[in-house]
Computed example of a mutant assay.
Amino acid sequence: MFTAAILGVLAAMALAVARCLIGPTAFDRLLAANAIGTSAILLLALFGFLTDRPEFLDIGITYALLNVIAMLAVLKFFRYGALGHEQDPEKDPN
């Protein structure tokens, strides 16, 4: 049962890699990269259950946090053109 789930997640990951390579816009590629990260987390969890090692879930949670931080950094780079964006008090009062 877990083997079939792992094969399904690998198939979804292969489709996401294809979208990442073919995607017409940068945002399609970014969404595909996020889907690859999510699939990797699912793959870690399924492999942990298959091998009866629940500590893989901790690795998956850590990878999920890194995935969220990386996506926020990339989106900030797309919006401002740099990660060290300084706010202009006249344009943005916050």
Rank of each mutant, 00 (worst) to 15 (best):
I69E: 01
L65C: 10
F2N: 07
A18D: 01
G60Q: 12
A70E: 04
L57V: 15
A32L: 12
I59N: 00
T62E: 10
R19C: 04
G48V: 14
Y80V: 03
I61N: 08
T3R: 11
G23P: 03
C20F: 13
L30V: 09
T51I: 15
H85N: 05
F47D: 03
A5R: 06
T38G: 04
D28W: 12
V9R: 00
A73F: 09
G48D: 07
S39V: 01
F49S: 06
F47W: 13
E55W: 08
G81H: 05
E90Y: 09
M1H: 07
A33T: 13
A16M: 09
A33K: 06
A5S: 13
F49D: 04
L66I: 07
F47R: 09
G8C: 03
A32E: 03
A35M: 15
L10G: 02
E86D: 00
M71R: 00
N34Y: 11
F27V: 14
C20R: 07
I6Y: 02
F77L: 15
A40G: 15
Y80G: 00
L57K: 03
A12K: 01
Y63Q: 10
T38P: 00
T62I: 14
T62V: 13
P89W: 05
K76M: 03
A12G: 11
T51D: 11
A32S: 12
A14H: 03
T51S: 12
A33G: 02
I22L: 09
C20Q: 07
L42N: 01
C20H: 01
T38C: 06
F77I: 06
L72Q: 01
D28K: 11
L44W: 05
K76R: 14
F27C: 01
